[in-house]
Nucleic acid binder design. Structure first.
Length: 287
DNA sequence: AACATCTCCTGAAAGC
DNA sequence: TGCTTTCAGGAGATGT
């Protein structure tokens, strides 16, 4: 399930391979992966003979800039994969879009569950590209400010887990990394956000950056489906401390990792290190 | 505002 | 063993 580190890894592995290349043919095998605006025909026509001039990541979105000003934007959601092939193998069942470049290389978008989307937008049409314009700050961005982050918690009565999953509050986090951040911060996922003390919010701020940087260094987490832009798995799944580890020993104390649905998602936490903030808001997390 | 529930979708895993 | 049911989840829509 690609979150910020996985999307960043796809970008880094893919961009050097396709930057400067010109799109020759566009094949859409499953039309419902093409998001607004416009028809699939317009989408294909809009890509024809365009060069990839650059690219960046924003939240979980991959943005490729094309000459002429349009942007090709992907959201991989759960099972989406985007990778480059020089000599394409026979396409798989769930390959939905293939861009062939003039030099023969191909960019392939496949997605088993088909939740992923691809958008082609002109300048001024960015609002149609998924949640691009509704995204909160980038956790690793140079402008991400601690004081602003602390203030943003003020009237948030919801649970911290739900808040960190909210892309308009903070961009790029998903279920795996939120659990890892809360574990490293000794905070129970059900703690009301506005019950958190300043030092706890500071901890989230720091641990968020720390976990994301480590995960990017490990080229992302492959739980099942995720691959980078060259089709390779990530390594960070071996370094997850709580996610997917129900019943295993906590890496910090003698207790065992529990699993509970919070904010509609499986949440993994140590009941000893991460005391329930509802019952014990003054918990320091020591156990 | 906050939270639950449903939808989309497939395939792995669990249940019987 | 083999069939059926459940579960996983990002995010938007809808209901309470």
């Amino acid at each position: 399930m690609p979150e910020l580190p996985e999307v960043e890894t796809v970008l880094r592995s893919l961009l050097p391979k396709i930057k400067g290349k010109e799109i020759n043919t566009v094949r859409v095998m499953h039309e419902d992966v093409v998001g607004w605006p416009g028809s699939v025909k317009e989408f294909s026509r809009g890509l024809f003979r365009k060069k990839v001039t650059g690219g960046f990541r924003r939240g979980k979105l991959l943005v490729f800039e094309l000459n002429g000003g349009k942007k090709l934007i992907f959201h991989l959601r759960m099972t989406g994969r985007l990778y480059y092939r020089i000599n394409p193998a026979p396409l798989e069942k769930h390959s939905h879009l293939v861009l062939e470049f003039v030099d023969g290389g191909t960019l392939i978008f496949e997605d088993t569950r088909r939740f992923g989307r691809v958008y082609l937008v002109a300048p001024g049409e960015e609002c149609y590209a998924g949640n691009l314009e509704k995204l909160g700050p980038e956790p690793l961005g140079p402008d991400f400010d601690l004081e602003e982050f602390v203030r943003a918690f003020d009237k948030k009565k919801g649970r911290i887990k739900a808040l960190l999953l909210n892309q308009s509050f903070i961009a790029g986090l998903g279920n795996i990394y939120v659990d890892e951040i809360l574990f490293r911060s000794n905070i129970h996922p059900e703690t009301p956000a506005n019950n958190l003390e300043k030092h706890q919010i500071e901890s989230i701020f720091l641990k968020m950056k720390e976990v994301l940087k480590e995960a990017i260094a490990g080229r992302g987490t492959t739980f099942r489906d995720y691959r980078d832009g060259e089709g390779r798995s990530g390594d960070f799944q071996n370094l997850l401390q709580v996610y997917g580890r129900e019943g295993e020993k906590c890496p910090r104390c003698s207790d065992f990792i529990e699993r509970k649905k919070v904010a509609g998602r499986s949440s993994f936490f140590c009941p000893c290190c991460q005391k329930d903030g509802i019952n014990d808001p003054s918990s320091t997390g020591e156990c």
